[in-house]
């Protein structure tokens, strides 16, 4: 299988602090990769470097075989790599529908129209379809600030998927979401991802979620990858248990990985 994303000796230093050290990651098209690690392990730094938010100190990043090192976040997004955020990044003074309409307009053209209205019938119909796909249609006219955290996360991810990316990076999609909502949220996201045929890499602290949805796990510790492989093998790894999870893996509840 060809790699959609590849990093070579990726390093990031913040003064004396080494946030990423020689990260060599290959993600094949269609994979669902989970990234685990304790706080400060370098997971978000890795996503931020890959999506152009942070410039690596050294190393190379290839997307579909082409270097994207030094590219702006918007150029990387246009190239087909989208992301969501640990704290949902929405437009708080707009309602949910308008958030999606902005994302749709952005996906249609990098030069938005000067005079034709954002709220066209076609765009509204498409936005309503997306809201229904993500199960948040009842928040259509609610201000983002009045929407529960789980729904905000779904809107954030829906906005990232609107541009039909080839790869989606999710930074802790279930953080701040209640235990009851986690599975529903991830089922919704993974269904949408499968329908769109998107490669996924997501950072997650909940090992149940990791075991359930990913086909491969990268375990980060202190800016380095200390394990890379199938979830069962990585979560059973002694070093990972000691440094990352701090517990033995739970019994598998069913494999949701694609």
């Amino acid at each position: 299988m060809t790699n959609i994303l590849e990093t070579r000796s990726l390093n990031k230093e913040f003064g004396a602090v080494i946030a990423a050290k020689d990260l060599n990651v290959q993600v094949a098209k269609g994979e669902v990769v989970g990234v685990i690690g304790s706080n400060g392990a370098g997971k978000t730094t890795f996503i931020n470097m890959v999506t152009g938010y942070l410039k690596p100190t050294r190393g190379e990043i290839l997307f579909n075989g082409k270097s994207i090192l030094g590219h702006s976040p918007r150029a990387i997004t246009r190239a087909g790599m989208a992301r969501s955020f640990q704290v949902a990044q929405l437009f708080p003074e707009m309602n949910v529908l308008d958030n999606l309409l902005v994302a749709l307009a952005a996906a249609e053209s990098p030069r938005p129209s000067f005079l034709s209205p954002l709220r066209s019938d076609a765009r509204i119909a498409r936005a309503e379809e997306i809201l229904a796909e993500f199960g948040v249609e009842h928040y259509r006219d609610s201000l983002v600030t009045a929407v529960p955290q789980g729904a905000r996360k779904l809107v954030d991810i829906a906005m990232a998927l609107i541009g039909n990316p080839q790869m989606l990076l999710l930074d802790e999609p279930t953080s701040g979401v209640s235990m009851d909502e986690k599975t529903g949220l991830m089922d919704t996201v993974m269904n949408a991802v499968r329908q769109h045929g998107v490669t996924v890499l997501f950072v997650e602290h909940d090992m149940d979620v990791v075991e359930r949805y990913v086909s491969r796990v990268l375990a980060f510790y202190s800016g380095e990858i200390i394990a890379d492989g199938k979830p069962a093998a990585v979560l059973a790894d002694e070093q990972v248990r000691d440094l990352v999870t701090g517990h033995r893996p739970t019994q598998k509840k069913g494999n949701g990985a694609s």
Binding site: F91, L118, M159
Partner: peptide
Amino acid sequence: AGIGVICEAVRENEVRVEYL
């Protein structure tokens, strides 16, 4: 229009606009 609303979106969250 698209640009007018997106300019307001820039005021609210420039990072998200960039990642769109």
